[in-house]
Design a protein around this nucleic acid. Sequence first.
DNA 1: TGAAAGTGCTTTGATTTTCAAAGTTAATAA
DNA 2: TTATTAACTTTGAAAATCAAAGCACTTTCA
Lengths: 100, 100
Amino acid sequence: MKISLDQFDKAFENRIRLQIMSVLVANESYDFNSLKELLELTDGNLASHLKALEKEAYMEVQKSFIGRKPNTRYSVTEKGRAAFKKHLQALENLIKQQKN
Amino acid sequence: MKISLDQFDKAFENRIRLQIMSVLVANESYDFNSLKELLELTDGNLASHLKALEKEAYMEVQKSFIGRKPNTRYSVTEKGRAAFKKHLQALENLIKQQKN
DNA sequence: TGAAAGTGCTTTGATTTTCAAAGTTAATAA
DNA sequence: TTATTAACTTTGAAAATCAAAGCACTTTCA
């Protein structure tokens, strides 16, 4: 019995990136500060994980102003959604593994 | 909406340890060389991940001989089984997350 | 006008994790 | 006795993670 892990995505191995993605697939978009509070991260740390996901083109950024305040929102791309789904499928397969 | 991650287990964040655990919960026991082949790892790498799980008392080792050959088998402990279950539950919660 | 505070970063540096490769021990086989 | 197999341990390098500090820009407050 062979475990297929070609579906497993290194970008989602990290707990924080997994959380970010799960927030983003469940919400149209999410802004920097809300994510920061939700995940209880320093902004540097959050920014670097966001950057990692952006580098894979799994999410994209929209910058705007709310009133006079800058507001950066993140949303998952189609590519990200597909990759995440695939990853979850890989986890599921792993778990539902049969006896050898 | 708060994401509870107190259930999330750092020992299972790594892909390889996740694989090992899923093999061990699905099988009574599994031996070193079979695991090595299954997961396509160097023996040093496998041994170190096994050690990490053993350190948490998530699995235990039985050494014996098959014919004249030494054979090391690993099996999940009750603690390990419970921890793994809890971890999978955490993943599930994360994924089934509702909109904020 | 000047100081403080907020937003969203980037940079830095330290710690931790991961991994392959090489070395090790102990047994058996040829 | 030399080789081989099993199962590690050690070593060292690379990658990942993270907090803290620094930064650019803007707004708000005194």
